[in-house]
Design a protein around this nucleic acid. Structure first.
Length: 218
DNA sequence: TGCCAGGCCCTCTTTAGGGCCTT
């Protein structure tokens, strides 16, 4: 069961912005190699709350390899019965509008987002921020920065089956909340905005890691 | 010829190579 509300609710919401967090399940690693999306989930996230959700399997008319079914649980039959990729992408693009986007490993999500949008004649207008790149800086001592590992490392709530879009996108939301709390405690950061995520993900790790370690040692 | 994702990051770097992360 996916919790309806996150556990990091803040008291002040005046300056909070809305962001859209997205996650794809796909048939492979690159649309350039013919991979297509099989599922997408998106949430509108504001001030520690999930305000709106969108999730759908999608039928792009492609075969789902067995190893993808093993990984995600998404079968060819599930995809065959799903609405068309074009319809789903129209819906989800309308759902997120021009809100800034976040994904775990944004470079992966961005290339599928752009590729699937291009197939319906639409173009992304907003920037992505990457929770994985930020997590590398906030949690330099984590064993690795896979979403599942970070969930265990940061003791995040269970959101359902990993490698399904809805569970992964909600886990990303929990991760953002946890990073915001960590940064707020250590750096007097008031609010983890999309702009700040973009700054942090590009900060030199060699600069920020000693800073975080020093602050954690206090 | 040989390889085949690709963007980002680190370092034994920058005239490069290798690892991480996503499905």
């Amino acid at each position: 069961m996916i919790p309806p509300r996150l556990a990091y609710e803040k008291q002040t919401a005046d300056s909070a912005e809305s962001i859209a967090i997205i996650d794809f399940e796909t048939t492979g690693l690159s649309p350039g190699e013919g991979a297509r999306a099989t599922e997408i989930a998106a949430i509108i996230f504001r001030n520690g709350h999930i305000e709106r959700r969108y999730q759908s399997l999608m039928n792009a008319g492609v075969y789902v390899p067995a190893f993808i079914t093993d990984l995600t649980g998404i079968t060819n039959e599930m995809v065959r019965r799903a609405p068309s990729a074009a319809r789903v992408m129209q819906e989800v693009a309308d759902f997120v509008g021009d809100l800034p986007l976040v994904a775990h490993n944004a470079s992966f999500a961005r290339k599928f987002w752009d590729s699937e949008l291009a197939l319906i004649g639409r173009k992304r207008q907003q920037e992505f921020a990457c929770s994985m790149l930020v997590a590398r800086r906030v949690y330099p001592t984590a064993p690795n920065h896979k979403l599942g590992t970070l969930a265990t490392f940061a003791n995040l709530p269970n959101t359902g089956k990993a490698h399904r879009a809805q569970a992964d996108v909600e886990m990303t939301a929990h991760l953002l909340c946890h990073m915001e709390v960590t940064l707020a405690q250590r750096f007097q950061i008031q609010y983890l905005s999309h702009a700040l995520l973009r700054v942090l993900q590009r900060a030199k790790v060699s600069d920020i890691q000693p800073c975080i370690k020093k602050l954690l040692a206090r």
